[in-house]
């Protein structure tokens, strides 16, 4: 059993290159149970790559990712079991267009965790009720707004009962009026004690919900600390320069 404060996920000298381009240049980071970590930084700095290495969507070219004490291996079949516990939410939602809202949520628990269909659906309705979408259960995603799709993507990941949730710019593809409803769902989640790593350009949101902020630039963590430390008293020149542009 993992207690609040225990190490949940750890990277050791994590490196990733695409061909000759070294995108991550050795990242050492410890994320503890219950923490909410915001990742900020300029475009191309390696934020998404860092996040995608945490669940091996990108296979690191060096170093290790250790999740709940296990070294993740992109080629091992155990990876599927670990991934069940690492939820991920994408910028482009990636809901399954050929499945109803309900089936989007239940398909993986039924297939991979052998949850009984009626139990999976019962829980799916409960999750949909929490995001105010239970009336959409039998709709197909094409009938949903961007904000609804993203909320669906979030509860789809929640249905696997993950120990950690990774968000890669969850509101960047949304129309401005839909950003709030999605942030609200994420805020709820962090309040419930879920461990979250959120890559975001919403500085106000990062400052509000994060316990810790990482500023990634040029493939390394340039600065980290509490939101107050990073946003109010940045020490590094690159952090200062970045913040002066976005704040």
């Amino acid at each position: 059993m993992i207690e609040v404060g225990d190490v949940l996920i750890e990277t050791k000298d994590l490196r990733k290159s695409f061909g000759d381009l070294e995108v991550l240049k050795g990242i050492n980071e410890v994320i503890r149970k219950g923490e909410v970590v915001a990742v900020i930084g300029a475009s191309g700095g390696g934020k998404s790559t860092f996040l995608r290495c945490l669940n091996m969507l990108e296979e690191p070219t060096g170093g290790q990712v250790i999740f709940e004490g296990n070294i993740l291996d992109a080629k091992s079949t155990n990876l599927n079991l670990h991934r069940q516990k690492i939820g991920m939410v994408f910028q482009q939602f990636n809901v399954f267009p050929h499945l109803t809202v309900l089936d989007n949520i239940t398909i993986t628990p039924i297939l991979e965790k052998k949850v009984k269909k009626e139990d999976a659906e019962k829980e799916a309705y409960e999750l949909l009720r929490r995001i105010g979408m239970e009336d959409k259960a039998n709709e197909y995603p094409r009938k949903l707004s961007g904000g609804q799709k993203q909320r669906l993507a979030i509860v789809r990941a929640m249905a696997m009962h993950p120990d950690i949730m990774l968000f890669d710019e969850p509101t960047s593809a949304l129309d401005p009026e839909m950003v709030k409803e999605v942030l609200e769902v994420i805020r709820e989640l962090t309040r419930s004690g879920m461990t979250c790593v959120i890559v975001t350009h919403e500085m106000g949101f990062a400052r509000e919900i994060a316990d810790r902020v990482l500023f990634i630039d040029g493939g390394i963590i340039v600065e980290e600390g509490t939101p107050e430390e990073v946003f109010e008293h940045p020490k590094n020149e690159r952090t200062k320069e970045f913040l002066s542009k976005v704040l």
Binding site: L57, F90, N94, F96, A157
Partner: peptide, 24 residues
């Protein structure tokens, strides 16, 4: 992104192909 979403949920490669990719 469809494959990535399915794999990130912990779906096996085979189920991802049969249940997510092929139907589309």
């Amino acid at each position: 992104g469809q494959t990535e979403a399915a794999r990130s949920l912990g779906m096996t490669a085979k189920n991802t192909m049969i249940r997510i990719v092929l139907p589309q």
